[in-house]
Amino acid sequence: MATGPTITQAELFDPKFLEAVSRLRLVSKRVARGGRPAEQRSRDLGSGIEFRDFRPYSPGDDFRAIDWNIYRRLGRVFLRLFEELEDLPVYLATDVSDSAFLEDDPRARTGLRTAFALASIALHQHDRVGVFSFGEDLEVAMRPQSGRGKTMQIASTLSGLNPKGRTDFRQSFRRFASLGLRQGLLVVISDFFDPGGIEAIREALGSQRHRLLLVPLWRASDRDPDLTGDLELVDCETGETEDVSVTPQILEKVRDAHDVFHADLIRFVRRRGAGILRVDCDHDLIPQLSHLFEGGRYEA
């Protein structure tokens, strides 16, 4: 059930943001070796199918090849080098559930911008990019396509997405799996607030045959809610209510619950060999992405 307002294209992709994405693309192009993945297969190790080696990440490297397990262990970003680079499609699954559109500065804004930025980079590397939106179910917003000219089409597609009710990872990614897409990188951009909890997320994403990059859209207030008093908390997606008298003890338990959830998510990512890129919705997106692509480090 759509409950929130949509975000217009002008709001989402204002000139300042587009310019920032362009700079991000330039950063990603300053690659000593690489460029379009398909062009590197002759002499360089790339992100193909057969694994050969690791090497430190350099600005401009294909982020799809980042080994997130090594990053978590060592705190450094390494690439997994393969025998042959292939055209690895990028599937951007963006959360458009009601929760993404609820707040004054909706998370959907950051989520859609993240999707656009990643799509823009991939398209400029001649990769194929598919755009999907999910809430109660998953919809194909744009089938996988390549070509730099698709950038604005993706922008238009993303800005046309509407809220789609409650979050249901199981249903949405069962649907995604049923699409029979070629193996690629599945980027899940979401707040991950599935009423089914971490179990639903593990179940929905654990069975995917794609490589995974999870992009949690979080806010500091998720862990430290700025709420006081005697409240009837209404879940914006399910309508379920919870009577709470906010006390320091309750807030402590909320923090604990949040940390447990996040730890479970990290544990899942580690076990799945997936990547995770946590985006703070209260800060500018581009610096956060630049930090990853330019500095080769990302503080999770």
Binding site: D191, D230, L231, V234, T238, A257, F261
Partner: peptide, 22 residues
């Protein structure tokens, strides 16, 4: 019993766990 003030939140996931424990 106090009269609670309704507040819409993105999720009651963490709250539910905290309140049930309390």
């Amino acid at each position: 019993r106090v009269r609670h003030r309704p507040v819409r939140v993105v999720s009651t996931l963490f709250w539910r766990a905290a309140v049930e424990e309390a």
